[in-house]
Design a protein around this nucleic acid. Sequence first.
RNA 1: UGCCUGAUGGUGUAAUGGUAGCACAGGCGACUUUGACUCGCCUAGUCAUGGUUCGAAUCCAUGUCGGGCAGCCA
Length: 599
Amino acid sequence: MIDEAPAAAAAPSDFIRDIVAQHVAENRYAKIVTRFPPEPNGYLHIGHAKAICINFGIALENNGQCNLRMDDTNPAKEEVAYVDAIVDDIQWLIAGWADNCLGLKPKGTTPTSQIVNGQADYHIAAASPGAGQAGAEPFFASDYFAQLHSYAVSLIERGKAYVCDLSPKETEEYRGSPDRPGKESPFRHRSVAENLDLFARMKAGKFPDSACSLRAKIDMASPNMWLRDPLLYRIRHIAHHHTGDAWCIYPLYDYAHCLSDYLEGVTHSLCSLEFTDHRPLYDWVLENLSLPRPLPHQYEFSKLRPTYTLVSKRKLSQLVASGVAQGWDDPRLPTISGIRRRGVPASAVRRFAIGAGVTKFISTTEYAVFENAVREELNPLALRRLAVLKPIKLVLTNIPAGDVIECAATDNPQSETPTTRVVHLTREVFIESDDFAEVPPPKYFRLKPGGEVRLKYACIIQCDEIIKDAAGLVTELRCTADLTTRAGGPNVDRKVKGTIHWVSVSECLDAEVRLYDRLFTVPEPDADGDFMKHVNPHSLEVVTAKVEPSLKEATSANYFQFERLGYFVIDAKEANPGRLIFNRTITLRDTWAKAPGQK
RNA sequence: UGCCUGAUGGUGUAAUGGUAGCACAGGCGACUUUGACUCGCCUAGUCAUGGUUCGAAUCCAUGUCGGGCAGCCA
């Protein structure tokens, strides 16, 4: 496994952490329990990373637990494959950080609550340090269907819910609009006995889809739309990925979520802002069931929205379906799997997500903040290697063919005890074509006719001659090496302005290198509702690079920095021992490229 | 003419009645066998108007602007 940097410092406090701290001080709960509740209908993306970091972070900081729960109440959209992908992404993202507070449950079990000494006692699984171990699985809202059903019966018995025969279309009309009260359903005042009978028949499959629904009896004139007799259950004759054909009625989010939280002993249900209007309904369900305390409470925060990308499952799937992206794990996508394949360490995703802060302010986070987080984490981790992306041949005329000069190259200068490896300087080397200019711009430190430059880890060279082909293109540079400037040599301290990277022509390896850039050309691709038009046509460039021979042993468990170029990883999906493929995670910061007159 | 929610440099975030701070971005410089890293300096902010107070980003009032809410989605 990759040698990760230590977990980033604890997140600074925020309004939610303040509330939790207050509750801890009051001893309000035996244990702080949060949850991360994805619907298994797609892949996790960078936006989810914030919710993950908040929920797991708060659990971690309070010796609590964060349950991973599949919010799977809509069988039409959900698949097991997504469940597996989500579990995998989560485990990668929190490994070495919060994996000890990851709440999973023994496979096949169902948590329930019971009353012990007048207090709710929750049978929730203990945190599972070996999250990946067989026998553990996430929680599923669908595991609670039986319990949820009996709660619904209880609501009916209390006169708090009724079976409504209005069609979806009529239901919508009766609901009114935000500035106009709704109308009561003609079925609102059915007797408890009739509702019980109807609900039993709904469950028994006596009605077709949408023929009727179970609704909460609240207030059709409420200024809050979610309180206008919201639906609790709908009829769907469709198999569920987790419960199979056991049910044909399925609970809706607002009904299932609060009760799932309750059944798992969740204390703080943290979600994004768009659920703020749902909170009164969340509380209504729990209150009207007269459940034993303590009850969970919902708190909302603003989503993470980085520039130059999209965080919407629907739009992301459009990119995949249209072929703009080559799968959900395309390294240009902001999906967790894409980011991971791109070579971004989990610690960098966390640093970014945590750094964004927790507020109710609708914000956009500059992509540069993400880039900074990636470089911050990679710099101390990445092994330095020499690689030439766009090679041009350079001949050291004073080194005889066949001579091999050993040079010690540092693996990581950031390390307290840096290790080195040997690279071989030979008569012919490749250098980056960008590192030579026949007509150099002002302040050009690199190689130019008659100029000097240092070959990193080797020696200073001087450019004597330029060889061109018939078309006038430079094909070869002829230089003289000053071997007295090598490490240990008498003139090692001689200074030249430029140092460039290189590889030996006779010893280097060919590697496919995929150079990724941001997927969109504008900061807010969907601002005008047509993000497809802003796709960056140059978001992927593939080159055949010349890389130093030690890279033959590279595995996807290593992060590399190709010196002066950027950070790279082996493409975990497509590379194999016979085919070296590197993904560029991100370039190094480059103040030269930004200089006036450059590119 | 509804309800909910928010507003601090370019961006994000802190200050919880007492010196508006930090990070990113941007600029200048030092260092450098990575034009990287590191270090130093600089630029730039409390939505508006009133009020309370010795003192307001913070409390109150009014206004302005932004976001969310009318799925049998989550």
